[in-house]
Design a protein around this nucleic acid. Structure first.
Length: 504
RNA sequence: GCCCCGUUGGUGCAGCGGUUAGCACGUCGGCCUUUCAAGCCGGAGAUCACGGGUUCGAAUCCCGUACGGGGUACCA
């Protein structure tokens, strides 16, 4: 066990509301939550809305809904408050400007009135000369009078942090260990934008300090900016948190995860029929392993075994086949009640959203699903697959294909015989239950001289209009005697007319 | 370009100086069987990216190369 896991950790998930909550962000949130729960600490949600240009109002709700669906409950956050409220950066601007002022006073930072178009021109010149792009620290020696003059003229003024001209910086990351950077390669960077908003660099450092965050868990893309964050800490004279940089999640082609790779956001996975437990389990393993071969682990077990020291150092590749398998495994482990609970909403969804035909009135008879749950469980990997599997139970009319009634090694006579014998039989079986149907239909099959597989095929197709359906006896019982006989008779008619058409 | 990080069967992981390189997904074959699944059994599939060291001994430690990823913004 990692030593840092033993003391209560305060960890935050700090998304910026600029779009949908992607799988990568969700995995980071999960690791935050796992560390907080394991250590008996707090999981904090903080909204980082410092980019006015990319802000999307719906995004914050989407983020919260995603976390809730996955069961990642937060102890402090925008809607519930907490000792360090507010938890939305746009409501904390005075903290950042105070920090920026302090940094200016100590000389760690300075005001810069270099205009955007000047920066753009600089970049173009660098590009033309084949030089690496970058700010050349030209604003370092502005006088207060010059800055004031620019402000009076309404020009843009930003605050930049001064980077030492030379020197190395050695930092420690909980995942990768020691990482060294050459400071001479960095340029002075913006901490306060001209619109008065802080950049990420300043804002998160200030907030993490105020909120007493112990572990900064975030994506690998931030590794390169650690020196900037360390410099801000030093300038402010505040202690460093522990850094935990988690590997990125890539698509099957080793490229960034995008639409091409299927669902992207947590809620899309929900709608595609994944259970939150399965997704949580899969996500936990995407960039972390407990050190043995166990893969299917309950939430509690994952919390217990989670260890930031065992987070992987290389990108994780999202394998949707494995996720599907895992989802199927979770579905199979559900009890009948829980499974029914999950399945019914998918069936009751509008037809256009993958539910039963709209002609079926809602709410549906969930007892039917409950009864069949044991035989349904093994047959679906995604909850959405349920509709296709059981729709015949709910619709009034089905449309069986007579050609499909002729099973392997069967002729037309056999089909007619099987249907007729089963119609007669079904009128008599008492009770009309799966065990009785099992016994009696098998007897009829042997009486008819057919193999069970042959005898049952026309029945299945007549009653379900499918070649592939749930097990027959349970299906017939669920359907009931009356409907079964009605469909068998209808099947008989359809098959007869099919035969006469064939002859013509 | 420069900087940082990584590299074990098709895929995801285990391995932490001595193993017949283990597990899972997928794939192939068999059993079971009323269809389809599930389950069970078995198979194929890895010169541990490559090249140098260190060591009695290296997938494991060091260096280099290749490849992959990230960064290089008044985005996060």
């Amino acid at each position: 066990m990692n030593i840092s896991d033993k003391t209560p950790a305060r960890v935050r998930f700090a998304p910026s509301p600029t779009g949908q909550m992607h799988i990568g962000g969700l995995r980071t949130a999960l690791y935050d939550w796992l560390l907080a729960r394991k250590s008996g600490g707090q999981f904090i949600l903080r909204i980082e809305d410092t980019d006015q240009t990319r802000y999307q109002e719906a995004a914050e709700q989407h983020i919260k809904a995603s976390l809730q669906w996955l069961g990642l409950d937060w102890d402090e956050g925008p809607d519930i408050g907490g000792p360090y409220a507010p938890y939305v950066q746009s409501q904390r601007l005075e903290h950042y400007s105070a920090a920026a002022r302090q940094l200016i006073e100590t000389g760690a930072a300075y005001e810069d009135d270099t205009q955007p178009k000047e920066l753009e021109a600089l970049r173009q010149r660098q590009h033309a000369a084949g030089q690496p792009p970058g700010y050349d620290n030209r604003g370092r020696h502005r006088t207060p009078d010059q800055i004031q003059e620019s402000k009076d003229k309404g020009l843009d003024v930003v605050v930049r942090l001064r980077i030492p001209d030379r020197g190395k910086m050695e930092i420690h990351d909980e995942v990768r260990g020691k990482i060294t950077f050459d400071l001479s390669l960095l340029q002075d960077f913006v901490i306060l934008k001209s619109d008065g908003f802080p950049t990420y660099h300043l804002a998160h450092v200030v907030d993490d300090y105020h909120m007493k965050i112990t572990h900064v868990i975030r994506g690998e893309e931030w590794i390169s900016s650690i020196p900037r964050h360390v410099l801000i800490h030093q300038g402010l004279g505040i202690p460093l948190p522990k850094y935990v940089h988690v590997p990125l999640i890539l698509g099957a082609d080793r490229g960034k995860l995008s639409k091409r790779h299927g669902a992207q956001s947590a809620l899309e996975y929900r709608d595609a029929g994944y259970t939150s437990d399965a997704l949580l389990n899969y996500l936990a393993l995407l960039g972390w392993s407990a050190g043995d071969d166990r893969e299917i682990m309950q939430r509690d077990e994952i919390v217990q075994r989670f260890d930031i020291g065992r987070i992987l150092q290389h990108p994780a590749i999202f394998n949707s086949e494995k996720l599907e398998w895992m989802n199927g495994s979770y579905i199979r482990s559900l009890d009948h009640e829980a499974l029914t609970e999950l399945l019914v909403p998918f069936l009751e969804a509008p037809y256009s959203a993958g539910g039963l035909p709209d002609s079926v009135k809602r709410p549906i008879d969930r007892c039917l699903i409950m009864k069949l749950a044991p035989v349904l469980r093994d047959r679906i990997k995604l909850l959405t697959e349920i509709t296709e599997l059981v729709d015949f139970l709910f619709v009034d009319r089905i449309d069986p294909n007579p050609a499909q009634m002729i099973g392997r090694r069967m002729d037309e006579q056999m089909v007619v015989k099987a249907l007729e014998m089963s119609i007669q039989g079904c009128a008599q079986f008492e009770p009309f239950s799966a065990p009785v149907l099992d016994r009696e239909l098998r007897l009829l099959a042997s009486d008819s001289g057919m193999k069970a597989g042959q005898f049952f095929t026309p029945i299945r197709v007549a009653v379900t209009a499918k070649r592939v359906a749930p097990p027959l006896f349970e299906t017939l019982e669920a359907l009931g005697r009356e409907k079964t006989i009605e469909r068998l008779q209808k099947g008989c008619e359809i098959f007869s007319s099919y035969l006469s058409n064939q002859k013509e």
